[in-house]
Design a protein around this nucleic acid. Sequence first.
DNA 1: AGTCTAGTTGACCGGTCGGTAAACTGGAAG
DNA 2: CTTCCAGTTTACCGACCGGTCAACTAGACT
Lengths: 220, 220
Amino acid sequence: MDTQKNQPDSRTALLHAARDLIFTRSFEHVGTAEICERAGVRKGSLYHFFSSKEDLVLAMLDALMDDFEGAVLVPSLEGPNCIRERIDAFVQAIHAFEAAVHRESGYLPGCPFGNLIVEAGTYNPGLRQAVKRHLDRVAGHFQRCLQEGIDRGELPAHTDALALAELWLALMEGILVMAKVDQDPATILRLGPALHVLIGVSGPHTTSEDPPEGAAGGNT
Amino acid sequence: MDTQKNQPDSRTALLHAARDLIFTRSFEHVGTAEICERAGVRKGSLYHFFSSKEDLVLAMLDALMDDFEGAVLVPSLEGPNCIRERIDAFVQAIHAFEAAVHRESGYLPGCPFGNLIVEAGTYNPGLRQAVKRHLDRVAGHFQRCLQEGIDRGELPAHTDALALAELWLALMEGILVMAKVDQDPATILRLGPALHVLIGVSGPHTTSEDPPEGAAGGNT
DNA sequence: AGTCTAGTTGACCGGTCGGTAAACTGGAAG
DNA sequence: CTTCCAGTTTACCGACCGGTCAACTAGACT
């Protein structure tokens, strides 16, 4: 990354440290002292740049979302490929990301946004709404991908891209929970193809109407 | 003289308090002092019955699983109904449960097992494996339900009940994450019908009925 | 009676939590 | 030079954390 430069680096170092630690563990389980230690910064500096631990995490989520869009969402969901290939690329990208973290840290962390919601969603409204904004943005990528599929005739014209994008996100969140239970990236590859069933592109070539029994057979 | 007629009730009171508090908030965010206060018990008693906070939570999960089986899984998934009706009943039961908690406490908690996995799955192996056991048991109910559907001819004979049960669980976990993001039980009813699509009973399986769009929600 | 014991109690422990305050640094601007 | 100030450092705070301990209580058994 940019650790070579000596520039106003403490803020970035804090963001990186918070991301690495909270992502692989949890919001409550990681303290400010540990974040500062990892960042090589004293605690006073943390509260110079951020008004609270929550404020730091909020800024961390913004940066994380930008990275996630650039590394996963845009490369896999945009381009000339058909929608089936895009879904496959998306699953592969998620798997590659989680597997990389698992390889380097020993942890399979799951979805950082989903993690925060599940942990703090009930008692921290600010955090919850911030995460909701980011998840809506992720779903927006799905929706645009689906809409392109509809426009190209790869999906039925009556498909509800908005509703299907929400389901896409829901299943992906659930798959990441299951992968976290197993602590095994392979779970993502095992369950990911079910997205085809959910979205309705399970067959090799999409007919306008649903196949009588092909949907259930093509899973896993 | 004791106003209570039951026996060694402190243990049960602690289990109930831990369930209510940790379920609606989180493992790390709820302290032993608060659990004891809610249970009307001094902290020493907690450590008379349980060796640690984690031990208490483990026992609480066992009791919770028993309640969940009796209140949701068995009533909705067993009986003479066809598989489509069972899925609907299951979604309704989950919704009723979450909506009741939401009404009474103001929180929509999501899945207690999934919550714990997401929060502590990476750094607490004991908790993770305990939750995994419970989730496997839930998936076992799904699998038996699916197998019955296969035996009755409601599902294709080549259906993989084990793999499909895992997907059922994954989608349900994801739906509960989405409901927690929204803090709205209606999300469960909106996304729940997608289980039909995933399992493959969304099509016009009943020739007599004519569902316009509401029952299956197949392509939405 | 006396003893035993499961259960209860309140005081207490060391450690860590998020957060604060004041003093300090070094480079840019006047 | 002096002034200024974003950024850094150190020491520190009160609150809370999970957990411990010895003393105590009351019912059951002998």
